[in-house]
């Protein structure tokens, strides 16, 4: 694997995570339980799409084949996507959405914190800009996880179910492969295994305050960030997300 290939892959992972999760969260627009949450979720989704523009824009430059962020986002098929499996999981109920958001936000915060010290200046700059948004995302999703987990019997049960469902998707975020190792060796991105310690402390504290039990299993689904095996949900996201560019190629406004 040449350096540029790994770097491009890494940038696609960062950008596809925020693209796919951003799209998922935007599905709540107009459907959230209350107006205030609706707007907050839409803000979060837009933050993530904004971050996508930066990551995939840089990916296009690094690749050097003249592709823009839009080209990469809208004109690839499922097997070329490099988002982790967690991001493409369905929204479920509001609690499940917030649990998914919290688990991702906690990883995202740890990742961006380290990326601010990246040996690649552009990466460090994007991380510094994105982290301000993500600090708020994780505060909000964490507070909601606590409120619902430590809420009524029904909300507690739903949050525990959500955690049980999503927990097997957490491991992928911290399991390094050839791309991650190359990035860590080049000083572009952190060693993912080292990220896990801070993450565990962070979510342990929030989930314990939420009176939720972390499942006693390290089983982790793999195949999202490598593109080897996405879940069936990704294709369905793309049919919605990409239909306009597919039906009206090159359309803009």
């Amino acid at each position: 694997m040449t350096d540029t290939t790994a770097y491009f892959e890494f940038l696609c992972r960062m950008g596809d995570n925020t693209l796919v999760l951003g799209h998922r969260v935007s599905e709540w627009c107009g459907h959230a339980p209350i107006l205030e949450e609706d707007i907050a979720l839409a803000n979060t989704a837009l933050d993530m799409i904004g971050q996508t523009q930066m990551w995939l824009g840089l990916a296009g430059e690094v690749e050097g084949e003249g592709r823009s962020a839009d080209d990469i986002a809208m004109l690839r098929d499922a097997w070329d996507f490099r988002n982790c499996l967690l991001c493409e999981q369905p929204n479920g109920d509001f609690g499940q959405t917030m649990m998914r958001q919290f688990l991702f936000d906690a990883w995202h915060l740890a990742m961006l914190t380290e990326l601010q010290n990246s040996s690649e200046q552009r990466v460090a700059e994007i991380a510094a800009k994105a982290i301000k948004e993500v600090q708020y995302h994780v505060e909000r999703s964490g507070d909601t996880v606590i409120a619902l987990g430590d809420g009524t019997a029904q909300s507690h049960e739903r949050m525990q179910k959500a955690l049980n469902l999503l927990w097997p998707y957490v491991g992928e975020l911290f399991t390094p492969d050839a791309v991650d190792t190359a990035m860590a060796e080049a000083g572009i991105a952190p060693d993912l295994t080292k990220l896990r310690v801070g993450f565990d402390t962070h979510i342990g504290q929030v989930l314990s305050e939420a009176t939720l039990a972390i499942p006693d299993s390290n089983f982790a689904h793999q195949g999202g960030k490598s593109g080897f095996q996405h879940s069936e949900h990704l294709g369905h996201i793309l049919t919605q997300m990409q239909w306009l560019q597919r039906a009206y190629p090159g359309a803009s406004w």
Binding site: L35, E36, I39, A40, D143, A147
Partner: peptide, 20 residues
């Protein structure tokens, strides 16, 4: 104005609704 369960969430909601 807006609805929120407590003052902390009220400030968060205000941030999202009124300072976008």
């Amino acid at each position: 104005s807006l609805h929120a369960p407590d003052e902390e969430m009220a400030i968060k909601n205000a941030r999202d609704v009124y300072t976008r």
